[in-house]
Design a protein around this nucleic acid. Structure first.
Length: 464
RNA sequence: UGCCCGGUAGCUCAGCGGUAGAGCAGGUGGCUGUUAACCACUUUGUCGCUGGUUCGAUCCCAGCCCGGGCAGCCA
């Protein structure tokens, strides 16, 4: 009967065919079925593209009684011929010679032909990739990951794998998840009264950033990047925070803050341009069903250079705006979300890079500027999301770094290897982190980070 | 973590102090090269949980659980 040895053709290739094909094999999942008296229309999707393939099953087929099991959601294989469609709406269709139900989907199959809310789909994260929207999201996600590697590889950046498990407990980026083999009670299981035995001999955590290790490799291989998962145990409950997310962190030796901003801006623009060029079908879908202004906004980002202003200028601009902000604008405090939104969405209507922040509001590793008040920090802000890139020039002078660590109450001994970099061949260097999911939100217009990651981990939620 | 909103059929939602409805999905029949197909008929509910008020609670009150929005933390 049916064997899987035969090569099935992806639907995206069938739909793009320029000639009929006598023998094709199609494998996929039924999206919908329309029955007539003497034949049925099946729409099949195999994930290769947004569009479904229409299949005609004639009642004279020996397998026709199988059609009643071809409900929405069923896995199916069809052998037949690719022919020009007699109906409107599609150029090609497959006239079935035989069909086999590979896996039935009962009447309780949760995904229906009608639209579903994103909240509902989050609850069925094991099925939502079969929906139009999430199929598009995850095809774009895959392409975006590829484009990231291309961008850096084309520029001779080396891909470095920094550790997931780390013993540095205050990298300045947030609360951390403990990694331990100890039972949840905290009792060691190694005899009464004995001290807890740490697997690694010291407390360990999931990484919140590969930056410090990235600096090690940058000061050896010059230009490097990391791209991997990151974990933050913050009790954040917003549409743009996740406990587990992916981050890209380039680090460049012999590079000042300006070069760092140049790279970050051209990186963001490259990724936007690549998505426009390679994911047109998906973007049209998002533009229609998710965010009407998406494609024009992406085209604008891809074609215009980013506005760049320092923190002091940003504060002045906000003060001069005359807008009544909920949080006051004042030199020395962080820009609030409403301030960032004003800059990107109202005043400049596009991405904005803000740099040289007061040193008090930034972590220990950022380089002190000559004014003694600001550090070489930079954030790239984009409309709708806010901060998508955060980076800095690193403090490469040992004595300055020591002072910073003292001021931040950091145990210098814990960072002996990080300090060593400043003692042996130290060099001005810079880098940044770009949130992969936030980038995905930017290019898809999807407004909740939980909807651009396959299985979201957020406070109180780790299903699947 | 704080403030705000919500939880009713498989899904989207309406309803209301007197014991529950629509559309879609599912089922049956019909019709059509259909395409979110159409027409007729039809099944389905611990109204989030626990307690309270009440003759009576899905509705009012309290606590809890879950979901969402916004803010902070950041990417």
């Amino acid at each position: 009967m049916f064997r899987f040895g035969m090569q099935a053709t992806l639907i995206k290739y069938l739909l793009a065919s320029d000639a009929p094909v006598d023998e094709v094999c199609v494998q996929g999942w039924v999206r919908t079925r329309r029955d007539a008296k003497t034949f049925s229309f099946l729409e099949i999707n195999d994930g290769s593209c947004l569009e479904n393939l229409q299949v005609i099953v004639d009642a004279t087929l020996a397998d026709f009684e199988q059609v009643e099991k071809a409900n929405t959601g069923a896995a199916i294989q069809i052998l037949g011929k690719l022919a020009p469609s007699q109906g409107r709406g599609q150029a090609w269709e497959v006239v079935a010679r035989s069909l086999a139900i590979i896996g039935e989907a009962g009447p309780n199959y949760p995904l229906q032909k009608k639209g579903h809310s994103l909240e509902f789909l989050r609850g069925i994260a094991h099925l939502r990739p079969r929906s139009n929207l999430f199929g598009c999201v995850f095809r774009v996600r895959s392409r975006l990951a590829y484009a990231i590697h291309r961008f850096f590889q084309e520029r001779d950046f080396l891909y470095v794998h920094t550790p997931i498990i780390t013993a540095s407990d205050c990298e300045g980026a947030g609360e951390m998840f403990r990694v331990t083999t100890q039972p949840p009670t905290g009792r060691g299981g190694n005899g009464e009264g004995e001290p807890l035995k740490e697997f690694f001999g010291k407390p360990t955590y999931l990484t919140v950033s590969g930056q410090l290790e990235g600096e090690i490799f940058a000061t050896a291989l010059k230009n490097i990047y990391t791209f991997g998962p990151t974990f933050r145990a913050e009790n954040s409950n917003t549409s743009r925070h996740a406990s587990e997310f992916w981050m890209i962190e380039p680090e460049m030796a012999f590079c000042h803050l300006m070069g760092c901003m140049d790279l970050a801006e051209s990186f963001v623009r490259y990724l936007v341009r690549d998505t426009l060029e390679t994911c047109g079908t998906e973007l049209k879908f998002f533009n229609r069903f998710v965010d009407r202004g998406l494609i024009p906004r992406l085209e604008s980002i891809a074609s215009r250079s980013f506005t760049r202003l320092n923190y002091g200028e940003a504060v002045k601009l906000l003060l001069a705006s005359g807008k009544a902000f909920q949080y006051p604008v004042e030199f020395g405090s962080n820009l609030q979300a409403e301030h960032e939104r004003y800059l990107t969405e109202v005043h400049f209507e596009g991405p904005v890079t803000v740099y040289n922040y007061p040193r008090e509001i930034k972590p220990f590793y950022m380089r002190l500027n000559d004014d003694g008040k600001t550090v070489g920090a930079m954030d790239v802000l984009v409309p709708g999301i806010g901060e998508i890139v955060g980076g800095s020039q690193r403090e490469e002078r040992a004595e300055f770094l020591d002072r910073n660590m003292d001021r931040h109450g950091i145990e210098k001994e814990e960072y002996w290897w990080y300090r060593d970099l400043r003692l042996y061949g130290t060099v001005p260097h810079s880098g940044f982190g770009l949130g992969f999911e936030r980038m995905l939100m930017l290019v898809t217009g999807v407004s909740n980070i939980r909807d651009v990651i396959p299985f979201a981990r957020t406070p109180g939620s780790a299903e699947f």
